[in-house]
Write a protein that binds this DNA or RNA. Structure first.
Lengths: 202, 202
DNA sequence: GTCTATAACTAGATAGAC
DNA sequence: GTCTATCTAGTTATAGAC
């Protein structure tokens, strides 16, 4: 808690509520309660629900962006990258369980919002990753594959199981504990599947 | 349109609105407008927003269930299954673009709802698929893999790219047309990745 | 900066005529 | 069954005291 300013208190409370309930489901009163202050203060600092939401969304995105940049904007070896992202993504979702779903959901609600984010510093730039994959293909280090597809595979295999957790638990009829074990096993499973997919067969 | 009953008119309108806006974002007035009638009729037929929503959600799920059952509750060959699901999933999303996101989003909002669905006829039963995979492993037809992981891979690779479309388009800086092409290419890409993953190496 | 009280408006739900 | 009009509760937002 420390000597956190009220403005930050509000933002943190708003984060928790918006990420659980979404823009439409969240209530200013609930955010005020969560922050331990009254509603008027929310408007004093952020003027409207919309502006408060945008502050939360922008901050949320700034937390996810470095994770993506580890993949697209980093010099490490391609195989190592795949393994690293996969292994660190699980700890990321444990720290921010509602975050990926929040981002994806709200971008579906208002897909123009991505344009605002694109202009901000730190927005992932895909070109470096693309160049890296193309080089490895040219050098015969990996088999021919589009960087775009590899990137989508990596995100899909890692992120989807968390988005669809309630659904998959329902299909498999398993509890939270068993599901968590499955997620743990996936680290190795996903790394292998992708690395084997791009490795040149001898 | 034909001689559709008012009750169905309402349900169809509600489907469109709820799937675009979600439970919290949808407005009864908007549903009434979409159906070309007045608000009072919504309550006359469905009593409350909650009940109308549940009718929509249950129907939505009953559209997705057969797609899943093609995987988990069908006698076709495993390799063929993977290929079939992947190829037919894209046409499914073209017919019902908002549906997968709707289901996943609302289950995250109220994850107990899956329990209600589980009791309904036609809810996917995973055991047959599990038995099939275990048998293929025992017979040495495929390498050792858990049915759960294979199932999650299949759903992830197919469904995620549609859920996260605005986000991925933003990262890759590509337009709708290019994205659609990528999705088209994925049919072959996903089939190969999964089939190669489980095939025994000679 | 922080609070209470309240304005202004919206949304779900209902009453009652036809 | 279908409509218009209205009730009631809840929600964002603001006014104004301290």
């Amino acid at each position: 808690m420390k000597d956190e300013k009220t403005e930050d208190h509000i933002l943190n409370a708003a984060e928790r509520v918006f990420q659980r309930k979404g823009m439409d489901g969240a209530r200013m009163q609930e955010i005020a309660n969560e922050a331990g202050i009254n509603k008027a203060m929310l408007h004093y600092y952020y003027r409207s629900k919309r502006f408060l939401f945008e502050a939360v969304f922008t901050k949320a995105f700034s937390l996810i962006a470095p994770e993506i940049n580890k993949v697209v904007n980093d010099d490490t070896d391609l195989f190592e990258k795949i393994r690293d992202f996969t292994y660190s993504y699980i700890s990321f979702t444990q720290k921010h369980p509602y975050l990926p779903n929040f981002i994806i959901q709200e971008l579906n609600r208002d897909s123009d919002f991505i344009n605002v984010l694109q202009t901000k510093k730190g927005f992932p730039d895909f070109r470096k990753f693309q160049a890296q994959v193309e080089k490895e293909v040219r050098d015969g280090k990996i088999r021919s594959i589009k960087a775009e597809q590899l990137f989508i595979h990596l995100l899909s295999l890692n992120i989807f199981p968390f988005l669809a957790a309630p659904l998959i638990k329902g299909f498999l009829k398993i509890n939270d504990r068993t599901y968590k074990q499955l997620m743990e096993e996936r680290k190795e499973e996903i790394s292998n599947i992708l690395i084997n997919h791009i490795k040149v067969k001898e």
